[in-house]
Design a binder for these strands. Structure first.
Lengths: 140, 140
DNA sequence: GTGTAATAATTGCGAACTCAATTATTAAAC
DNA sequence: GTTTAATAATTGAGTTCGCAATTATTACAC
């Protein structure tokens, strides 16, 4: 029926699953007033040393372009989820830091997110999940 | 370091890998003048009986909303990749069929796509790929 | 030190979507 | 046989990006 190689088939499955899951999480996080992409930004900042990152590094971490990050952060600054900060050593870079408000929202959203993720992953044994994650990282 | 459950971590990895891979394939397919999403549409039609599908079913298959499908198909009809057809039994549904041109473009694009997919999946043993695909389908 | 290249961020423009509401048609209830 | 509900597709309005070009700043070569 399908004239696809195994790799081709896998890539299609991956992107479809990714889209599906993203949309579901967007809906889940809407309760907290943030999108799934915004959640990922908050998460990366929360993990970063000093809760601060350069825009390029943030872009790489969440899988966006630098342009996309600029546009995404603008509204997030306005509602004070993150704060802009300049780097005294290099005037080209502008750092982004998680604010107190952002930290709070992140904590709340994380609970919803984790719960939903568990639901989505039901049916996969825990050890499989770890292996699955490792293999996904090896893709691309 | 990361205060995430295994499932939460997996979901993040999945969506990031999905975004990354989608963007790469978009670039690869640009040579043929189509986006990755358009390729997926052509692929689903090529596999369908009579190379024809209803719009809702196509939406489900490629992971878009019905609205998204309408907007996506408009330009594809204009350049004659697909053809619109009405269902004599039910005037609500409008069927989409792969055209001869569409079939040709699909064949060319499929070669590029498969090649790129192989490159992306290098480092994963073939039997792992099959298992990985099955597990991804169980998500969501 | 001056000119050239590299790096960081932003902006103009457009493309690709989503959601909510709308239109058209068919099915179901009674 | 009418209402009422369900289904299929489209449209209006808005969001979220990407790419290419631009601006600003730093590093490098010589």
């Amino acid at each position: 029926m399908s004239s696809l190689t195994t790799a081709a088939s896998l890539v299609l499955t991956l992107t479809e699953a990714g889209n599906r899951v993203s949309r579901r999480l967007d809906h889940t996080l809407a309760i907290h007033g943030i999108s799934f992409t915004e959640f990922r930004v908050l998460h990366q900042l929360a993990q970063a040393p000093g809760e601060t990152l350069r825009r390029v590094d943030l872009a790489e971490a969440v899988g966006l372009t630098a342009s996309g990050v600029t546009r995404l952060l603008n509204p997030m600054e306005k509602i004070h989820l993150v704060e802009k900060e300049r780097n005294p050593r290099d005037a080209r870079v502008s750092l982004v830091r998680l604010s107190a408000t952002g930290k709070e929202i992140y904590g709340d959203a994380l609970a919803s997110f984790s719960q939903r993720a568990e639901d989505l992953a039901v049916g996969l044994p825990g050890d499989r999940m770890v292996e699955l994650g490792e293999q996904l990282n090896r893709l691309a």
